[in-house]
Amino acid sequence: MSEGRVHPALTAGARPAESVAVYSADARPRLWENLKNVVAHRELLFAIAERDLRVRYKQTFLGAVWAVLPAVLMMVVFNIFLGRFGRSLSEGFPYPVFAYSGLIFWNYFASVISAATGSITGSYSIITKVAFPREILPWTRILSSGVDLLVSLSLFGVLLLVYRVDVSWTAVLAVPILAIQVILMAALALTVAALNAHYRDVQYVVPLVLQAWMFMGPVVYSTQHIPGSLRWLYGILNPMALVIDAYRQVILKGQVPDPRVMLGLFAGAAALFVVCYTLFKRADRFVADVV
């Protein structure tokens, strides 16, 4: 099964190589085939992400400032309320540094998930008229918000300099952690996008859940006081908590995270991705009928 196949490389006068597509109610989505199809449509991924950035910043006065402003404002607000409790909440780091380090990665997560919610329903005009791998729609925000993340990270660098927090080599380990976060986001983005196509209630539920989720995690305060015996349970219920803790470990504390935790996290995220992607592709066949 393949849909929205890639156009064969075009040469003047040459007929494209024949590929056969079968659309059947019994077609089984094959994960690998689907991923290959996405890779083949990567230009679409980039084009929509670019469109996203353009549209978001074209008609705004402050432009790229909006990429960092939400996290900065949240950091300032939380600093006013939580900063006064001393460094016990922030594991011994200056509260703004601690909060901001959590907020930028959390905001990345939250903006991807909330943008993904309406990504299928909002693209009514292309979904019902052109065939293409629709999982690209919820995933584009991973790229475009990734640009915002880069901007936020450079501001974070400034913050580290201002508060004289040293960063060790372990900070490069943030990259594999980011990879785990991306897999998690990709899986959840598919889920909320497909659900919202069938039940618009989802678009009202997602912001509430995200809000609650943020306060359940170690974003603006430390959760180190949770006993070790319960932490694994906490991690399963809220993998983003482990991810954010891991970022702080490698960036602020200069520690190498427990490889067992990281492997478990990776395996869990990958398994979640496979399940969500398979279900998404099944629902996707008829999504043009319901959006």
């Binding site: 056969v20 079968v22 659309y23 059947s24 008229k129 052109v130 065939a131 066949r285 008829f286």
Partner: peptide, 13 residues
Amino acid sequence: AGVTYPNEGHVRV
């Protein structure tokens, strides 16, 4: 066009 799927049967393009 591959925009939606049949509920029964199949289409080959």
